[in-house]
Design a protein around this nucleic acid. Sequence first.
DNA 1: GGAACGAATGGAAGCGCTTACATTGCCACG
DNA 2: CGTGGCAATGTAAGCGCTTCCATTCGTTCC
Lengths: 397, 397
Amino acid sequence: MDGRDVSAASGVTIYEVARRAGVSIATVSRALRGTGPVAGATRERVLRAVEELRFTPSRAGVSLAEGRHAANGIVFPNLSGPYFAEVLIGYEEVTSELGRSVVILSTKGRDLSTKERGLSVKGRRLSAHGPDLSLNEPGLPGQGHDAIRDLVRELAGRVDGLVVFGSTVPDDVIDELVASRLPLVLISHAERPGAVTLRSENVSSARALATHLLGHGYRTFAFLGAPYATGDDVDLRWQGVHEVLGDAVQPVLTAEYTVESGYEAALRLLGTRDRPEAVICSDDEVALGAILAAEELGLSVPDDVAVTGWDDIMAARHARPALTTVRQPMRELGARAARALDELIAGASLEDSHRTLDTELIIRSSCGQHPHEPHLQELNPQELNRQARHAEESHPR
Amino acid sequence: MDGRDVSAASGVTIYEVARRAGVSIATVSRALRGTGPVAGATRERVLRAVEELRFTPSRAGVSLAEGRHAANGIVFPNLSGPYFAEVLIGYEEVTSELGRSVVILSTKGRDLSTKERGLSVKGRRLSAHGPDLSLNEPGLPGQGHDAIRDLVRELAGRVDGLVVFGSTVPDDVIDELVASRLPLVLISHAERPGAVTLRSENVSSARALATHLLGHGYRTFAFLGAPYATGDDVDLRWQGVHEVLGDAVQPVLTAEYTVESGYEAALRLLGTRDRPEAVICSDDEVALGAILAAEELGLSVPDDVAVTGWDDIMAARHARPALTTVRQPMRELGARAARALDELIAGASLEDSHRTLDTELIIRSSCGQHPHEPHLQELNPQELNRQARHAEESHPR
DNA sequence: GGAACGAATGGAAGCGCTTACATTGCCACG
DNA sequence: CGTGGCAATGTAAGCGCTTCCATTCGTTCC
């Protein structure tokens, strides 16, 4: 390892190939990329030399000369939840098909900057039932921010385009990216001039979910895992729920969107005398935590308290009771983002650049036995496979 | 987008910075990287120019000149299971800390090449309970192989080192990588000269698990999700189990290591008259499928049949009954791989290059109430947090 | 007071590739 | 038989950066 060798995978350069084949490097290049005419015999010789020398073009050399990286990036908060992993699967698959590599960057946790916390609902201030986990001193440019900024810059420097999740990255960093004219797709982020945005439907799904719960006869509700930022997915879910339920639903903050914080918040919430009849959780993991908390408190789900989630992650189906939730097409989201980004890189304009994917309400048993619904066959093989097919079949372009 | 601009993130080159600061590009470079002496005032001017122009060095230019990519790759079969996602988290985190980017490549499914299928046990040929999913025609170089080969080469060309999971990549491709002297870390792969290998302990954990089940009084067993390749994790688990249980355990193939194929195989297995008393599954997802199948058949777990998993993924804790399993330090595995790779890149030798991480037997309720064990507190907050801490605290280097 | 030294800087040669442009033959056509 | 045209190939100019080496001064030390 002398460190002076970019193509560690070979060390062979186009010059050696050229010499061996008895041609110029230009001809080697043309033969390999199929640009420009090359005589059959010549091509043969070149290819043989390439084979014998195990030549692989240096990526850095190609990038520099071509003026592109043939790589796309993606920034997400973390992969520990199944949600981001699923989106990443869809993204990687399509990006790879498009002949580009995928460079990832995890920001380790959502950006819970103080200024965006503490939403108020109709003037009523919300109390956090979880500890406040704000990372940054108010006013100060949090060091976390600057670290993220540098990492994102670094990433931006090695890709032709970028996908960024919701509130993983401070808005001014987004602005910087837009200003640099880097093709940019934002997932679950408020619309923003200069970037394509993409998300799953939230508001009307939330309305449907809330309506369904009303049909069960519940009259008091909590929304567990209240939104951290306006315009993010959870905020929209809250809006939809709140629209239908009005003051009957009480927003409750969690520290994060994890099983642990769902558990902790639910423990406090359900331990009180006037606990709600139904707990609408901002995502499945929070809901799983809530179910654990209920169990811990000796409460039966759904008889004593109903619980719903969001996303339909794998564990949602295996939990007992199985979780009523809203399925969003996670892989599809990633796949769409990849294609949109590709179009942007190819020079597409930003017209009509805000898309929303449909979701599906999945009724299982955690919300109670619905009087009007037929009993759902949880083990239906159809359902077993639906999620996989979903990504491929629905929403054809 | 004129396509002729590598640093899409700025378009500004070091020349413009130099002109603006009134110095040469050499000085700009030195000022920015801190190599070589630069007068304080000069540095100031350079930094100001950089700031004003929003200059970011072109990654391709730097890579070409430096002779390195400052990026590491990782190849995994897929991300849909939590296992690989968790390993990736650990890998990304450490690699990122080391100042390198992470380029990912998913091969979409394990390499189930025919030649490696159909293991025999003591001369007895195994029958597959699932459909044979072999991708390649026997003898023919499967197209899947060549596609993977190209993708891996491409990846290898843009990184300084590579981590590859078990049997995601054909062995001859591995050989090619080794021959090219690309720093290489193999996770859960048989030892191989020229590469570091890393895995979680399997054999003795499997022995412990089998022994525990014997303690429950079970006498007939199935091993669900039999190994596809010799030397992979599942093969070693099978070995350990088989060592302890001998002919009392029957190996049963699944099509894949997924909930669906676990479900299907278990449906067949448990539907028979002489079903085993305990089903030892090769991983948690197969086990979750087995539990679903048992439920479908009206069998109680663990009363009618015991089920165990492996990995301790999130859903294992939330399943009912909660899954007895073997926890392996997935993030730690990724983190270790990242550090080992870094050392290799830095020029470390390949001495002592085969490491095994410890696992932990997690007894929950799916294996039955053990006569000798105290009742396990499933909701213990300690357990809730253990996994997270695990990755950080255990196995300090 | 001059030599020796080191700090500060610039010049220029690559790093490995792509590609515009120049060059060389060869054939067909008038 | 001359020539326009085109296929096949070579030449060389970058792409944006790092770094070796040379150059220029201001010091310091005898």
